[in-house]
Amino acid sequence: MLQELLSKNHIEPARVIKFDQEKLHHFDLSKNNQELDRIDLNDEQQFTEYIQAVLDKNDCTTGIGGYGEERSLYSRSDLFSDEEPRTIHLGIDIWTKAGTPIYSPLEATVHSYANHRVHGDYGPVIILEHEIDDEIFYTLYGHLSTMSLHGLYEGKLIKKGEQFASLGAYHENFHWPPHLHFQVMLDMEGLKGDYPGVCKASEKKRFLENCPDPALLLGK
């Protein structure tokens, strides 16, 4: 649906984060990555050092990946614990420096926003609403700076390519190395200021149908 809308209307999304393609590393943070077996994922410093070490080793300034990955790293937070843990990642992560500007890929209005101050959660998050040919969908931006929420209000117009946020530092995004969690939702299911970024494996089909690959909206 999303790809058809963009193609039919000849829409090229703006860059969400401007990075050098030659300095981009594609991360594998799935449970199949044996490198992760050698670090304590519940040790926040070790995980942060691992992310930076991989970028340094590959001479990269930005890392990307994660859509649909089955991950084990969420054991580090009680937020994802349940009888069946949430392990399927529903967005794309872009790992780069705190303070990096974030731009809207399309014209939008602010749907909602919040600051989830819970270990392992989004921290500051903004959800934008987009409309093309009477079709409405949403984009979510998690792990932002607290300053990103200043001056916001629901319904605020955000132009395509306009900077509306920046990446948060470690203490702001609630104990994650600086990165953007970028996600698309076709239906907000009545939620405001939040939408799950990770789901249970048993619910994978339903959630991935509602959360298509956000790579379509990253821009070039």
Rank of each mutant, 00 (worst) to 15 (best):
K205T: 14
P101I: 13
H171Y: 11
I92H: 02
I136L: 07
K160W: 04
M188C: 11
H26A: 13
H150M: 11
N42C: 13
H150W: 06
A114P: 04
L79E: 10
H26I: 14
I11T: 08
I39S: 01
I132P: 01
G161Q: 05
A98M: 13
E69G: 12
V16S: 00
F27P: 07
D43V: 05
F47T: 03
S166Y: 11
I88P: 06
I88M: 05
G65P: 08
E4T: 12
T61M: 12
T139C: 01
L149I: 07
P214F: 09
H175L: 13
E172Q: 13
I88F: 02
I39E: 03
F27V: 04
K192A: 10
L29C: 05
Y195Q: 10
L191R: 12
G142E: 04
L217Q: 01
R38M: 12
L167F: 02
L55A: 09
Y113M: 07
L140N: 11
V184K: 03
E44A: 09
H175F: 13
H150S: 07
C60N: 02
P212V: 10
H116G: 15
Q34K: 15
V110E: 01
T61H: 10
G151T: 06
H143W: 06
H89G: 10
P178G: 02
L217P: 01
L152V: 08
A215P: 04
D56T: 12
I127T: 14
Q46Y: 07
C60A: 15
Q183I: 06
A201N: 07
D56S: 09
L191F: 08
I102D: 02
S7G: 09
V110S: 07
L180A: 00
F174V: 10
G120K: 00
M147V: 14
P124A: 09
